[in-house]
Design a protein around this nucleic acid. Structure first.
Lengths: 117, 117
DNA sequence: TCAACATTTCAAGGATTATTGAAATATGGA
DNA sequence: TCCATATTTCAATAATCCTTGAAATGTTGA
């Protein structure tokens, strides 16, 4: 993840509908959701949801795949992980003691973690 | 961190100058940097850096404090940690297996970690 | 008090981004 | 083939955000 990608990702996540789409797709997991289903749940018009999905796609945060008449969108977990890492890498290098709490918060679902924080 | 705050944070980080400011302040650590120093390093005009610092402040990502003639800005590590956590909390609840790699990446400076990834 | 410094505020303009509805594309079934 | 479904594309408008330079604010030392 370079600065360019991070900027695109942050920009994509800075819009309410798009942030809700991403969170919904994260919860949906690898099965993803059809564009129409997303539009219905968020009560947004088809053309508007399409606009935002395209934006998320350009940022690399979602992937798409046609399945019969529907187009299924899934969250790109690698990209989200890369973004988290990007947010933290400078403080790793410079002041680990000061960002350790942030890292701990992020570790809530790391291998071995028992509880959500 | 609620959705409203997350949107403001992502919006704040989605602009090149502001992202660079935050990364610079993270590296600078608790000592922070004066507005003028930031402007100089990033080769941005005083009024422009002021505009972006205000935006970061509104999003809660930086704090400010006057010191003699200068105003010292510091990164708000709690807010950054909160943002990381916000990004991950849904996948903790739903699909931990799928976002574990992201959590692992974020753990690079957690207590006990030896190396930057 | 005055001058220099550090930063912010303000208004104007330019640039980017979001929303809308209508038309286009692609798919599957009768 | 024809129709209904699912989604995207397009053009126009509206809304938001960024940049600029000039003027204002607050601070320090002579």
């Amino acid at each position: 993840m370079d600065e360019r990608q991070a900027l695109a990702s942050f920009g994509a996540l800075s819009q309410e509908t798009r942030l809700q789409i991403v969170r919904m797709l994260v919860v949906a997991g690898p099965d993803g959701m059809a564009a129409g289903t997303i539009a219905e749940k968020l009560e947004v018009s088809p053309s508007n949801i399409s606009f935002h999905l395209k934006e998320l796609d350009r940022a690399g945060l979602v992937s798409q795949q046609r399945e019969a008449r529907s187009i299924i969108y899934t969250a790109n977990f690698d990209a989200l992980g890369g973004l988290v890492r990007f947010l933290m890498e400078d403080c790793c290098a410079g002041h680990p003691e000061v960002c350790a709490p942030a890292a701990k918060a992020a570790a809530c679902c790391a291998p071995g973690a028992e509880k959500n924080q």
